[in-house]
């Protein structure tokens, strides 16, 4: 079972650096996330009409996914994401808007992002993926459950490929690591290789 599938491609976004399959594709000294991701979005030539309406988690996930999906013809691709902070960064924003009775103006545009799976919805819209989405919460990047779950989706023919990994945004810190699992690819799909790719940035 462990050798049946392969990792085709992977990418990482963290600490001002964006890499794809181990090669640096964008770097910035910008320390603030919103400025960093905006420059990355423009430099990498990504086009999505709702980009600037999205919350930070969705911006991070969309840019990471775009690196791997922009030239991907396969549309039967499931999304299996995980993180630690869920949508807490946006949750705090919504809470601020309702905390004080005198300044009580909850925003629908903020509230809609108070769910972690919204970022998978944005990716599905941009890449026309009518496929399965699952969002798991773990206190750190964990290959174990992602590995078993991805194998299950492929074995049960729920998808031809699976885009999976980690997208976390909390207190201004960001970390995305996504990889595509398919029948063929460069690396064996195993817990060891997933962990190794996550470490080699």
């Amino acid at each position: 079972m462990a050798t049946r599938y392969h990792i085709e491609q992977y990418c990482r976004i963290t600490n001002g650096r964006i890499s794809k399959n181990g090669a640096l594709v964008f770097e910035s000294a910008e320390t603030e996330f919103s400025a960093f991701i905006k420059t990355a979005y423009k430099t990498l030539g990504i086009a999505y009409s709702k980009f600037f309406k999205m919350d930070s988690l969705s911006k991070l996930a969309l840019v990471a996914a775009d690196l791997l999906l922009v030239e991907e013809p396969e549309k039967n691709m499931a999304l299996v994401f995980s993180n630690n902070a869920s949508s807490l960064d946006t949750d705090r924003k919504h809470q601020q808007s309702i905390q004080d009775p005198d300044g009580y103006f909850p925003s629908p545009a903020v509230f809609v992002y108070t769910l972690p799976n919204i970022c998978m919805g944005e990716i599905s819209i941009k890449h026309r993926l009518f496929s399965e989405n699952s969002f798991f919460i773990n206190n750190r990047f964990l290959a174990d459950n992602l590995f078993d779950y991805t194998n299950s989706l492929l074995a049960m023919q729920k998808a031809e490929k699976v885009l999976c990994g980690w997208v976390d945004f909390d207190h201004g810190k960001y970390d995305a690591f996504l990889y595509v699992v398919a029948k063929n690819g460069t690396f064996t799909h195993s817990k060891e290789s997933i962990n190794q790719l996550y470490q080699t940035i």
């Binding site: 809609v112 599905s124 993926l129 009518f130 399965e132 989405n133």
Partner: peptide, 11 residues
């Protein structure tokens, strides 16, 4: 069981 996205709108 199955789960599919609309790929249409977030809300």
């Amino acid at each position: 069981e199955a789960s599919c996205n609309d790929a249409n709108h977030i809300s």
